[in-house]
Design a protein around this nucleic acid. Structure first.
Lengths: 347, 347
DNA sequence: CTGAAAGCGCTAACAT
DNA sequence: ATGTTAGCGCTTTCAG
């Protein structure tokens, strides 16, 4: 159905191999023939068949992007479209295609990944999450298949290329912001404790408290899967404590948004009654009421750097493992307030 | 690097062609040899090379998924991860891979699509948006490349397979809900007027008004790109009118969420001061305050049906063009109120 | 029921 | 600077 290299060769009066060389812009072809061949390609509407090419150089010019399980609502986090934008931009630039893989369960995801690598569909893989005891990571490591993680590997961090923020420092700083505002009872709400990102952010929170001579209480730390009924219960309990917190460090903007709304149900307002800070600086955090004070982790950059890094690794197998830390910055908005400050609600 | 069909053949003491037939589960191979060959495959850890296979039968077992431009914030709409979930589920089932394509500009997107089809990377393409004068659609039609649209084609709707909701009816019904509640001044806020979905929803709104003897005023219809500064201005103007609306039909949950918050800034509360209804029933619409009355369009179903439809078309080139309408249902929640009803704010 | 051989579209030695 | 040839891993006639 398509026009092949032979057709072009015939039309240009050269051998197929010459055409191939023209495609690769081989310097040993005379400018004259190059021009002639290119003209023929144009006229015939020739486009190389990537499968044929992949077959011979066993390289696909495609990378696989692995999303976390779609079972929980995690996938709905605007984090993903935003990393994808970053990834996509450099992939497009470098002329790489993107294979996407998700699944409801961990096993489904693993299957998807295996299909990609065993079938020679991709040259490298990018993981958009990092959790402990992850089968996908293990599989990729065993096979020594090129991959990079967006986030921090839970093991062998110095042998796995990854691009991440310094989440513990970010968390420490944003917690300190709350402390500086005079809050003395600060709780932490995070996602699954299996996720590297949750662990780091929790640790930063802990460090801040300890360094400021505050005790870290276990009942102030709650883990919840993105605000299902279980999440509501946990938050409810937190505010039923004898000494409820007046400040909240929440590991994710979307969660924060849910918490704000839930709190309102209980008659508690942000920031008048309680100050919250969160992470990611997703678009939603700007337009919600109140606009959220959050740490901007530069999601787009995370994605684009990861893609660049992966392609380098793919092109040069013995590129060393890299760790790339994307700087964060705190976005001060309106979800925090000096502890005990007179209420300024104007509505 | 990989174990090939020849290795398996040798190990099983058969010819490569036999192995190939075993893979295809050809009935003319004796059960005995099948078993023997399968055993050899297992032992050697054989996995077919899809590129080789693609090359010979010019079929890739992959489909391309085209997202709209990532330039505006549209991509951040949870609609997309949710369709993707649906698509992904059936793709996984049918053993198809997903190639993803986006871009900042329309041309970038077109380039991506061309790379997919010219390079023989995919067997079919799924468009996740529908806008008038879309180059991608035109390209695909010219090339007679198999594709389906999630949404309604702006042209040749009977020649292009698509899966959609009856958006005009949905919009009519939800507008009527507002009318039944006693609202007499109802405005419409939608996205780009180039999008099929905006057009349909606007038309449904119009129909409802007309059918109920209400006049449709142009100053009550506003189009805004997902709440940028321009959007704020438009909403502001709307509520500066001599006769501001008491009801709002908003073409998208996410937009609705933005509007609710913006309104609050102006000192207007939902639903006490103004009732709003929207579309999509995205997860966010449940957890926001107030929970939104919205039409559930069954996004997941939209995706899974579209994928099924595309694969059928891909497998059988002269499958007729289909139109699949996914039923909607209205989710009644708390963003609407009887016009003039006593305020019941309990906070 | 199974094997031999050709060929999918392209690249990469190896010639010339 | 260009042509010839072999072969990537697989499927598919065509024989037997």
């Amino acid at each position: 159905m398509g026009v092949t290299i032979k057709d072009v060769a015939k039309a240009a009066g050269v051998a197929p191999s010459t055409v191939s060389r023209v495609i690769a812009d081989n310097p040993r072809i005379s400018p004259a023939t190059k021009k002639r061949v290119r003209k023929a390609m144009k006229e015939l509407g020739y486009h190389p068949n990537v499968n044929a090419r992949s077959l011979v150089n066993s390289s696909t010019q495609a990378i696989g992007v692995v999303m976390p399980s779609s079972a929980d609502k995690a996938l709905q986090n605007p984090f993903f479209p935003e990393v994808l934008r970053g990834i996509s931009a450099v992939a497009h630039d470098l002329e790489y295609s993107l294979l996407l893989s998700t699944g409801e369960t961990e096993d489904e995801i693993l299957e998807g990944v295996q299909r990609m690598v065993y079938g020679n569909r991709v040259d490298g893989i990018m993981l958009l999450y990092s959790r402990i005891n992850d089968k996908v990571t293990q599989f990729l490591q065993e096979k020594a298949f090129p991959f990079v993680i967006v986030g921090k590997p839970c093991q062998d961090a110095d042998r796995i290329s990854h691009v991440d923020n310094d989440n513990v420092r970010a968390s420490k700083e944003i917690t300190e912001h709350l402390i500086e505002l005079g809050h003395e009872n600060i709780a932490f709400i995070g996602g699954s404790p299996d996720l590297a990102v949750t662990i780091d952010r929790l640790n930063g929170y802990r460090e801040a408290l300890i360094q400021h001579g505050m005790s870290v209480k276990e009942e102030y730390i709650i883990h919840t899967e993105f605000l299902k009924s279980g999440g509501r219960k946990a938050v409810h309990e937190l505010f039923s404590l004898d000494l409820p917190p007046s400040g909240l460090v929440i590991a994710d903007d979307l969660m924060a948004l849910g918490v704000v709304n839930m709190l309102e149900e209980f008659g508690l307002y942000v920031p008048e009654d309680i100050s919250i800070v969160s992470f990611n600086n997703v678009y939603l955090s700007e337009i919600t009421r109140p606009p959220l004070t959050t740490v901007d982790i530069q999601i787009y950059e995370l994605g684009s750097q990861a893609c660049k890094c992966l392609v380098e690794k793919v092109k040069n197998k013995d590129e060393p493992a890299k760790r790339i830390i994307i700087p964060f910055r705190i976005k001060h908005r309106f979800s925090t307030q000096l502890k005990g400050e007179a209420t300024t609600k104007e509505a």
